[in-house]
């Protein structure tokens, strides 16, 4: 299996706080990998090192190396625009822009000038079909995206990533603002998308990790405690802390 993301001795400091400690991780292509662990364990921080969203915070220091598809992304030559085209991100709260549905989808196409206007319609249809929104929204393309239901907004946020053809989708608790039905739909969508994308999902929800992921990484207090196939980790965890977390002894 091709390795899509790899970290070597990755450390993350926020001021004097040591947020991630010596993380060594390899994420396989076309698989869903879940990052799990209690609040504050560093799972969201880890996710955000892969598209360098942590750069937005002041007072942050990263040591070690992160390779995306074999390329170190923490070098002075790294082009953040290209990195973020390759590594898309879905956030905890759906965050469509206060623009129309169509403008949301076409945003990346327009800023990166990846396609001429004549292809906009095709791109719209293709992206919305990929997240199963086309039928529902094909007559509402010029409505404000803020009028959609939360689930539709989150689907739109996923669809918005697709026109730039990323390789990796980072999902930071994508279902935490959604009800159980919508959550099931998004999980279904993730299974569909993994054929073409490498997906990393941060989740609080152990059942979700068990349902949807192929691999799981358990983080605790900034350290990667255990990493392996989800099935194995959830049935025979190697580390005592993993077992205690999975069985709900702490959380």
């Amino acid at each position: 299996m091709h390795t899509m993301i790899e970290t070597h001795q990755l450390n993350f400091f926020y001021g004097s706080f040591h947020g991630l400690i010596d993380i060594n991780l390899a994420v396989a292509q076309y698989q869903i990998t879940a990052l799990i662990g209690p609040s504050g364990c560093g799972k969201s921080t880890l996710l955000r090192t892969f598209n360098r969203m942590n750069d937005l915070i002041e007072n942050v220091r990263v040591t070690g190396r992160v390779f995306i598809d074999g390329v170190d992304i923490y070098t002075p030559q790294t082009d953040l625009v290209n990195l973020r085209k390759k590594v898309g991100m879905v956030f905890q709260r759906p965050n469509p822009f206060a623009l129309s549905v169509a403008e949301n989808i076409l945003f990346s196409v327009k800023i990166h000038k990846t396609a001429p206007a004549s292809q906009y319609e095709a791109i719209l249809e293709e992206s919305l079909r990929a997240v199963d929104l086309w039928e529902a929204l094909k007559d509402k393309l010029h409505r404000s995206a803020l009028q959609l239901s939360l689930e539709q907004q989150q689907r739109l946020c996923i669809a918005r990533l697709l026109p730039v053809k990323p390789d990796i989708l980072l999902m930071d608790e994508p279902c935490s603002a959604l009800d159980p039905m919508s959550t099931a739909h998004i999980e279904e969508l993730m299974r569909m998308l993994k054929v073409n994308y490498t997906i990393l999902i941060v989740t609080h929800n152990m059942q979700q990790a068990a349902r949807v992921s192929d691999f799981a990484a358990f983080l605790y207090l900034g350290e990667l405690i255990e990493f392996g196939s989800t099935e194995k980790m959830f049935t025979v965890p190697k580390d005592r802390r993993t077992e205690e977390y999975l069985t709900g002894k702490f959380g």
């Binding site: 969203m53 937005l56 290209n82 085209k85 965050n95 623009l99 800023i111």
Partner: peptide, 28 residues
């Protein structure tokens, strides 16, 4: 008053700071 998550979303899509301001924050 424009939520920070709009800008975050734009940057995560590979927008430059100027593009994020002009195309997302400003219309909002």
């Amino acid at each position: 008053a424009v939520p920070k998550r709009y800008k975050e979303a734009a940057l995560a899509l590979g927008a430059t700071r100027w593009q994020a301001i002009w195309r997302v924050v400003f219309p909002a």
